[in-house]
Design a protein around this nucleic acid. Structure first.
Lengths: 231, 231
DNA sequence: GTCATAAATTGCGTATGCATTAATTTATGC
DNA sequence: GCATAAATTAATGCATACGCAATTTATGAC
């Protein structure tokens, strides 16, 4: 299973050990190489990463701030599982903030180039769907959403959305192949982009909100129907 | 100037030096004892707090994650100033998330006790306003908003709102005495609580959104008219 | 066998030291 | 006098060490 829905920038060249630790541990968490619920002593991770405890500790603090792990003295660093309740919380927040971004984007307006960039992502997704290449679809879908948020120009919003997207990454990987093919999703995307292009802010917000609410309900249903109590 | 709009829990009993550092530094930042834009070497802060560099470093990482400071290697820990653009970003996010909380609260419903608790906060604010005790008003207003979010039951939302409230704390302190008395604000609060009591979710959301948008516009205007380019 | 207590283990919090390297100052050439 | 380079300074990143406290294991009483 390759890397999907990544949030890090293309430049994966960390200089400090701490940065290296953050990057490596983050990858391992969101790709399930470190299992949800598992505990890891600082010394263990330090050895695994070939560094001393100090940068591992610092990385753990950072990742804890991003909600990926929990530092529990003497019991190790715990990879946080995501319960249906967590999922609900996270999707609610993502729904609201992404809808805000859609709204602001419509108000602010986009250049023809920027609109076409978004449209070309949708085309790509459609092609991927045609071949039922869900891996690729998910990748582009993620890129589309990230770009959308980016264009809205609210850095903090971007950062929150990125953090919480990381948290549900595992769940999305898990449901990618058991969910129905996301054809309707693409129609939503097109409608959204055109609402933005037309400067219809409230409409854009509402389209995206409904889009996200559907995604959330689907996700919760899938998780429930497959009997996962946590991920 | 006393402590207002605090976000920490009543139990201010940190056990580790790191926690102590986080708490002390946070207080100093949001109360302006460490000035926005100023830089502080790890060693300097360590000495000031009577501990070694290690817990100071860890605290700096945590506070950086909360957007209060920036760690710049070899140039010290910088207390982040807030520009009008920052203010705009933060208020947009707070508006959206608090409105979501109001909405969810109306859907979920509150007990009569919980409703009365909120109402009593509003009464307190009104009394404070009568005496033009803005300090107290701000304190209760903050408590009201925090309680509202808490009751919505989305922990992550609570945490984000708390983080970003911290960031605008300084600005609120600054404008507390130059803004017009917030009479209208209280009417909004009453309307909100009654909408929640009546289970009118969309109405509650909209009332709160308008309330927040007004607050945001006022804040930006005040900041601009007083010629602050950053706080 | 169960529980309480004591001993042993071990993981963490924090201080400290040092190599690294960025920032700054001084020196040098034009 | 100015620009560039060399030298110096100094703050950090990280490894390491160590004591404390939490946890586990052992011991013994009942």
């Amino acid at each position: 299973m390759g890397e999907t829905l990544s949030t890090t920038s293309p430049e994966n060249k960390p200089q400090s050990q701490t940065q290296r630790a953050v990057m490596l541990l983050r990858e391992m968490v969101i790709s399930n190489k470190l299992l949800p619920g598992s505990n890891h002593l600082e010394a263990e991770l330090a050895e695994m990463l070939g560094m001393s405890r100090t940068p591992v500790r610092e990385a753990a603090i950072i990742l804890e701030g991003q909600g990926l792990v929990e530092v529990r003295p003497r019991r190790g660093i715990r990879i946080l599982p995501i319960s249906p309740k967590d999922m609900e919380e996270i999707y609610s927040i993502l729904t609201e903030l992404e809808s805000l971004a859609a709204h602001d984007l419509a108000v602010k307006g986009l250049s023809e180039d920027e609109l076409n960039e978004l449209r070309s992502h949708i085309d790509e997704m459609e092609k991927a769907l045609g071949r039922d290449d869900r891996q690729l679809w998910a990748q582009v879908d993620d890129r589309f959403h990230r770009r959308l948020i980016q264009l809205a120009g609210n850095r903090r919003l971007e950062s929150i959305v990125s953090t919480y997207s990381d948290q549900v990454h595992r769940a999305r990987l898990l449901t990618l192949y058991i969910r129905p093919a996301p054809h309707k999703s693409n129609a939503d995307h097109r409608a959204l982009v055109e609402a933005i292009a037309a400067g219809k802010a409230d409409e854009a917000r509402e389209i995206h909100r409904q889009h996200r609410i559907k995604a959330k309900e689907l996700m919760i249903e899938l998780i429930a129907s497959h009997g996962f109590s946590a991920i």
